[in-house]
Design a protein around this nucleic acid. Structure first.
Length: 230
DNA sequence: TCATTAATGTGTT
DNA sequence: AACACATTAATGA
């Protein structure tokens, strides 16, 4: 695919003039990264701004007990990297690809001069980071009250909103997460997630594709059930 | 395709 | 929720 097209798909870049996109394409080549690759850790911090052209990346932290806490799952057109220091106040963050991805790495210097050229980029960036902060807050709120079932329903509905693809009555969730991954995201055990998922399948709220751990959700049923749950 | 590893299902404590 | 164990799915040679 065309490099410029991908750049224009990046949220904060979408309205940049062609000339700027070409300049970025020149200095920050497109990189193919396999799934389950760790992009950076607190020990090897990000060296600039990552432009996620295609694919999915999970940002997470480790709690004192060594368990992972997922901050966000990012899809096509998002940005991450050094900017996380703004939104979270720290850079003790891990990033790993969830699937094969196309990524550009823009150095800090290049990014800073770009922002000086185009101050409106900074505004767009604030918008993107605010959205992400909102999502994280919602996740925290849901973690604080409901049962495992409610938390799982909330997670599934969120994933459907962000990464869903209409498929008849159902929405296919295009994120390759294992039950273990989901358990870590909602603070439950793997076994409970497995059992709850099986229950949701029986109740017709979700359906499993026989292909690579993809699931489909029934949005109306999910919302209805989430409201009914404690 | 087949062997190996990873993920999931389930009963028990 | 944690553990043990059986079953099934994915991976890659």
């Amino acid at each position: 695919m065309d490099k410029l097209w991908y750049l224009s798909q990046i949220n904060i870049m979408e309205e940049l003039p062609e000339a700027d996109l070409q300049e970025i394409a020149r200095i920050a080549p497109m990189n193919r990264t396999p799934k389950r690759t760790i992009l950076f850790t607190p020990d090897t911090p990000p060296q600039g701004l990552y432009l996620l052209k295609k694919g999915k990346v999970r940002l997470y932290k480790l709690n004192p007990g060594g368990k992972q806490f997922t901050l966000a799952i990012l899809g096509d057109g998002n940005i991450f990297g050094e900017v996380e220091a703004f939104s979270t106040g720290s850079s003790n963050i891990y990033a790993e690809t969830l699937e094969d991805t196309l990524i550009c790495l823009l150095s800090r210097a290049d990014f800073e001069s770009l922002v000086q050229e185009r101050p409106q980029l900074a505004l767009k960036m604030i918008r993107v980071l605010s959205e992400r902060l909102n999502e994280a807050e919602e996740m925290l709120a849901s973690l604080a009250y409901g049962s495992v079932k409610k938390r799982l329903l909330h997670l599934l509905s969120k994933l459907g909103q962000n990464f869903g693809e209409a498929h008849g009555e159902y929405i296919r969730v295009n994120v390759p997460l294992t039950h273990q991954d989901m358990a870590a995201m909602i603070g439950a055990t793997r076994e409970t997630v497995s059992a709850t998922m099986a229950e949701l399948v029986r109740q017709g709220v979700i359906r499993k594709s026989r292909f690579r751990r993809r699931i489909s959700i029934h949005p109306a049923k999910i919302r209805e059930m989430a409201d009914r749950e404690e």
